[in-house]
């Protein structure tokens, strides 16, 4: 199973039936699924799906061509290594929110990376009203140099007017 893995990236205007129709088509074509992220972003439906498809990239593209056209989806395929069963648990969550401003993601992530944060998952949204947008970002990661190393950056972000909070993840394994 280590070979013939692909990352299938699918984007299209959100409409009913995208996941079911695409999944059914792939299943009938002989695909096995790995990990997936399927979510709505700004009215678009987005899919990143690990697919095991021994018949190869060209055949994978052909097998979903019709359903993609029908649902008006744009598709991109990349060969990948699978690396399943290697989930890394986050030990810290950083929550940032504040008035929407250019460069907020770049500024926050660059400074956190510089003090040892490996980002495992980032999701963000623009909340508030159109007149007064608020950027909300949540980052899960591993603090390579300890959670304390992140604290000065969080304090700096707070001084700059952002609502920045650091949460250690108190993982329970039992």
């Amino acid at each position: 199973m280590a070979e013939h893995w692909f990352m299938l990236t699918v984007v299209g205007r959100d409409r009913a039936g995208i996941v079911a129709q695409l999944a059914q088509t792939l299943f009938r074509a002989g695909a096995d699924f790995g990990e997936a992220s399927m979510l709505r972003l700004g009215g678009n439906f987005t899919i990143m799906l690990m697919v095991h498809f021994p018949a190869g990239e060209h055949s994978l593209a052909e097998s979903i061509k019709a359903v993609a056209e029908h649902l008006q989806l744009r598709v991109h395929i990349d060969p990948i290594d699978s690396h399943l069963h290697e989930n890394e648990a986050a030990d810290v969550v950083v929550s940032i929110s504040g008035a929407d401003q250019a460069g907020i993601v770049a500024g926050v992530t660059t400074r956190l990376a510089a003090v040892g944060l490996d980002i495992l998952n980032l999701d963000s949204t623009v909340a508030g009203s159109e007149a007064s947008p608020v950027y909300v970002m949540r980052i899960e990661g591993r603090a390579r140099e300890g959670i304390e190393a992140l604290e000065p950056v969080i304090a700096e972000l707070q001084r700059e007017g952002l609502d920045a909070v650091l949460h250690p993840v108190d993982m329970l394994i039992a």
Partner: peptide, 12 residues
């Protein structure tokens, strides 16, 4: 599985 609800306990 994501962080949204997790954060509410900290009042963020």
């Amino acid at each position: 599985r994501r962080s949204d609800l997790f954060l509410r306990q900290g009042g963020a």
